[in-house]
Design a protein around this nucleic acid. Structure first.
Length: 615
DNA sequence: GCGATCAGTT
DNA sequence: CACAACTGATCGC
């Protein structure tokens, strides 16, 4: 849950995702996506009054977010104050103090965030530097390298600060299976079930929040069907979603909800109360999307877990995993990183400190020699989804840095003279490496036919789409297009600048595939299903509560700390429990700086187990 | 009576 | 499992 207070240090006159308290005085508002915890104060009467007296204060968001927001009556008063922005189209906004007339210009660019429909990150560029507010996001490793607007020419932009969705910034959440893998697992489960008879139906036990839509569309596509949901109203302008949902209760796949839906399910009823026309009892399974995570060295990823005779939990995450976050940060190398979320069981200072290891060094770069150790880790960062058993995590956080030139902050308006850092080495995901051929993702997805076309062509109708890309999740459900874009209401306070020229020269496919070969292999679990578990009215008591459908391979090393009850659930393993390398300890940044200095000065340095000793 | 906040539930 | 929303109790205006 976001605990971001609403304002960024560099541009304190704008407020993002918070609309109460101090934020009432903002010159402009930004909404990253339509989840309640990012809308605090948004329906406040105080704000409403302020708007009525203002000529310049506006709310900026994506078109889809606008649509979803206005779908809720409580926010309808915003209608005339919302300025929807296209994705990836830098827009200059004047931040005006209406009392004094003082004015500051800032260029904002919306980047797809992959969190839920309409979700975006905001990149601000102005005289206080480039700042990225991520909102909530789930991006795969390497995605930052594919975002044109994080680059200037072939170089990564100089990012002063990142305000980060740090939900899973904790080594415990090292790995979360990719969307593709999760989707494939769910697909197989659903397919195996509904193919058994017309009375076999599936209930997707989704929470009342946006973000599951790509599940609906992909399942709908795969099985040539529609998913039953409570309401279509919010999707009325989103044909690419609308065509896969229905309010026809006769559907085989349901994602409808009811306040007592869990009870209903126990009584073999769907939340919508639907039953078979001829009176034959339905055979219902529930699939509850929930986040599952896996430790650093866990190779097997069980994306489906059976939790009862007819209940399953399926891996699903709205947020990037620890390794995905590290990849993201390692690529951008911001000077500062501020957490928007404090993961459970941690303190704010703790997270900030952990994050500081991913910041560009603030000290004199010449004090650091990156070579000996940096190279080691660099390789890990390149292939985040793979070689998870590598012990090079020893120096986590200090890897990255191929030495990059630092220059002063630009204080001219605009973003012309942004200091450029060198592009990452060839082994890194290339900036703008446009992996546009549909074939490449197929390797990655590893989920057969269902995805090559999941881009749902209508999506491509988006007018602004500058970069031609392979089908991407974020294209699909993050920002989306609306029909009837009569939206171009030009606002007095905003003008569109020309997008930065695309430098999509690279053609090399980034590190997409990883070792997903180790992922699905789902034969095991189809067996379970075809065994056609007895109707769940007969409580099968000898079944354990939790059955892992695809057993772990022997590669989960439980060597040191072998805790039987956790051995099965790799997500219970944490890097705290099982150190990456038995003899290593994670050095504190100060210790490492000291170490690096010694190395730089030619001193001999030895790292011994547990503590760093030097000669 | 409305809204904000918190704890508990799913 | 740890997302995000809903429910109900409590407090204040």
């Amino acid at each position: 849950m976001s605990s971001f207070a609403g304002r960024m240090k560099e541009y304190p006159t704008v407020s993002l995702d918070r609309f109460d308290r101090e934020n009432l005085h903002a010159r402009a508002y930004f909404l990253s996506h339509c989840h309640k915890d990012h809308m605090k104060g948004l329906k406040g009467p105080l704000l409403k009054r302020k708007l009525q007296f203002s000529r310049t204060v506006r709310l900026y968001c994506s078109f889809v977010t606008k649509e979803l927001l206005l779908n809720n009556q409580k926010y309808s008063f915003w209608e005339e104050y919302i300025v929807p922005l296209e994705l990836e189209s830098p827009t200059q906004i004047s931040l005006v103090d209406e009392a004094s007339g003082e004015k500051e210009e800032v260029v904002v660019t919306l980047l797809p965030a992959g969190h839920c429909p309409g979700s975006v990150m905001f990149l601000f560029e102005g005289c206080h530097g480039n700042v990225l507010y991520t909102g909530d996001f789930r991006l795969a490793a390497g995605d930052a390298a594919r975002m044109e607007h994080l680059h200037s020419g072939s170089r990564v932009k100089d990012i002063q600060s990142v305000y980060l969705d740090s939900t899973f910034y904790d080594p415990r959440f090292y790995q979360i299976p990719s969307r593709e893998v999760c989707l494939k697992g769910i697909s197989e489960l659903v397919g195996n079930w509904i193919s058994q008879s017309p009375y076999h139906v599936v209930w997707l036990n989704c929470k009342a929040a946006y973000g599951y839509e790509y599940l609906f569309t992909n399942l709908g596509e795969e099985f040539g069907t529609q998913i039953h949901v409570n309401s279509l109203a919010m999707f009325k302008k989103m044909p690419e979603i609308l065509s896969y949902v229905t309010t026809d209760r006769g559907a085989r796949i349901h994602a409808c909800r009811h306040p007592k839906d869990e009870e209903f399910f126990q009584g073999n009823r769907l939340p919508c109360g639907c039953s078979a026309p001829d009176g034959t009892p339905l055979r219902i399974i529930s699939i509850k999307p929930s986040t599952m995570w896996f430790g650093e060295r866990t190779k097997r990823t069980n994306v489906i877990i059976k939790t009862g005779s007819s209940s399953y939990r399926a891996c699903f995450s709205f947020h990037s995993s620890y390794s995905e976050l590290k990849d993201f940060l390692a690529y951008l190398q911001p000077v500062h990183i501020y957490p928007n979320v404090v993961p459970l069981g941690r303190s704010e200072t703790e997270v900030t400190q952990l994050l500081s290891r991913m910041c560009r060094s603030r000290s004199d770069p010449s004090a650091f020699i990156y070579k000996p150790l940096g190279v080691l880790k660099r390789s890990v960062v390149q292939r985040p989804a793979s070689d998870s058993e590598s012990d090079s995590e020893l120096f986590e956080g200090l890897d990255l840095v191929p030495v990059r030139k630092r220059m002063g902050l630009n204080c001219e308006a605009g973003n012309e003279n942004i200091p450029e850092r060198t592009a990452p080495p060839a082994s890194a995901p290339l900036p703008l490496a446009v992996d546009s051929s549909p074939s490449a993702p197929q390797n990655y997805y590893d989920c057969t036919e269902s995805n090559g076309e999941d881009d749902d062509e209508e999506e491509e109708g988006r007018g602004d789409s500058t970069a031609s890309e392979a089908p991407r999740w974020e294209d699909f459900f993050s920002a989306g297009t609306l029909t009837d874009s009569q939206n171009s209401q030009s606002e007095p306070c905003c003008s569109v600048t020309s997008p930065a020229p695309s430098a999509a020269t690279g053609s090399q496919t980034p590190e997409l595939f990883s070792d997903e070969e180790e992922t699905p292999n789902n034969e095991d679990f189809s067996l379970t299903l075809s065994a056609s578990t007895s109707a769940h009215s007969s409580q099968n008591l000898e079944l354990p509560d939790t059955v892992i459908l695809r057993p772990e391979r022997a590669d989960a090393h439980h060597s040191e700390t072998d805790r039987p009850e956790e051995a099965e659930l790799s997500q219970a393993s944490s890097d705290f429990d099982i150190p990456s390398t038995p003899e290593s300890k994670v050095l504190r940044p100060e210790e490492l700086s000291q170490l690096y200095r010694k190395l730089a000065s030619g001193e001999e340095v030895m790292v011994r187990k547990g503590s760093q000793g030097s000669v």
